[in-house]
Computed example of a mutant assay.
Amino acid sequence: MWSPLGDRLPVPALAVAYDDGQRMIAAARAGRTTLDLKLTVDSPYLYDVWQVSEGRVPERILHTVTARNTAEVTARYGDMGGAEWASEQRFGWRPWQTYSWNDDQRLVRTGTTRQEFVSAGDSWWQHRMLHRIMGMSWGKLDHGMARAPRRYAADDRDVETWFAPVVRPAVPAAGGAPVPTRTGDTLDLRVAEFVDADGNHGVAGRAEEADTVEVRVSRDGQQIADLSEGWTPVPTTPGPARYRLDLTTQRSSDEWRYATRTETAWQFASARPAGDAAQPLPLLQVDYRVPADLRGEVAGDRAHQLGLTLRQPVGVPAPTGTQLRVEVSFDGGRSWRAVPVRGSGTGFTAVVPAGHGTVSLRAHARDAAGNTVDQTVLDAYGLR
């Protein structure tokens, strides 16, 4: 299996189909011949297809990829630093299966766009990507970021963007990740530590990434839980109270140059809900849209505009009476300056002035119900 890492053979080996080989041999025997090869190790196309025969096993299995049975996905693979290669895999399973573990990870060159063709119909698919090459060159990709599982229709023309800034802790709007909830007098406050602008999400904690995570829960100003060693249910009291969830992440390596440290604090009110069903909690979210390229960079010689959206997790009414402040730093968070913010409701824009290096962001938002979020992302994206 070809790898961009390690030693290379001085003479590459090439296998061709039998019929083509016979023509090449005949040409060589006929006299002087020249063989010109044009190869690529990062094809601009990829096919993930299922051959499905409903209710029967055909005598001859033949699958023809057509526009009537295939969706087209434009996959944009962002670069987070280090080597220009990463691992990805699209898992597929039939409706009667509970999970998929077959097949191997695949290599993709970061900073590129690839057209991917995926079988439509009732099969389920879930795409995953790791920002670097996985330690083993074989086996399933079991960490990194993931998209929510989905099915495709034949006329789907989807666009996926991986590792687009701003990567930060969040509850993804697209689903596929736990939503913080309260059941009776128990809080479940799981939040994905790494979520990109497209809602692709991943968790911290693998030794290979050397992540540092601190998570603390407070009620009315008093700490009631430390979840830094892992997510566990948090028991609480039935009466109304004001809660605060503090989540800090740190990841730094040659393969991870953006979102090197994040600090997020959510504040919200909660009391024992009626009934036994889990009730989603109002952790106010900030989504970011940065006009960055696939290297995570924006032109720094002029001002640029950020898009910001305020929302609540699925199951919580949309925020009203919102306010938003944004600050930026060009020196890794040592000094900050406020930037102009325009908008209302759930949609805002902020203007970042010209600069150089990296842009760190600090946002403070609140709504009429008193829910707040303070979020700092150091080295959120770069300037070129």
Rank of each mutant, 00 (worst) to 15 (best):
L14N: 04
A15T: 10
A15Q: 12
Y18D: 15
D20P: 00
M24S: 06
D42T: 15
Y45R: 14
L46T: 10
V49Q: 15
Q51E: 15
V52E: 13
S53R: 13
G55Y: 13
V57Y: 15
V57R: 15
R68Q: 13
T70K: 03
A71P: 01
R76F: 01
Y77Q: 05
D79Q: 11
M80C: 05
E84N: 05
S87L: 05
E88R: 09
Q89N: 10
F91P: 00
Y99P: 04
Y99H: 13
S100M: 12
R106N: 10
R106Y: 03
R106Q: 14
L107Q: 04
L107D: 02
V118G: 01
A120M: 07
W124N: 02
W125D: 06
M129P: 00
H131S: 08
A154Q: 08
D155P: 02
R157H: 14
D158T: 12
A173T: 06
A177P: 01
A177W: 02
G184H: 02
A192L: 12
V195T: 08
E208A: 11
V213F: 03
R219E: 07
D226G: 05
S228A: 13
E229L: 14
G230A: 12
T232M: 09
P240I: 11
E255R: 09
W256I: 00
T264S: 04
A265R: 01
S270A: 15
G275C: 14
A278L: 06
P282Q: 06
L284V: 04
D301R: 06
Q305N: 12
Q305I: 15
T309D: 08
R311F: 05
Q323C: 05
L324M: 14
V328H: 03
V328K: 00
S329Y: 01
F330Q: 01
D331M: 04
R334V: 13
W336L: 06
A338I: 07
G347C: 06
A354S: 11
G357C: 02
G357H: 02
T358S: 03
S360E: 00
G370A: 11
N371P: 03
D379A: 14
A380G: 03
L383H: 01
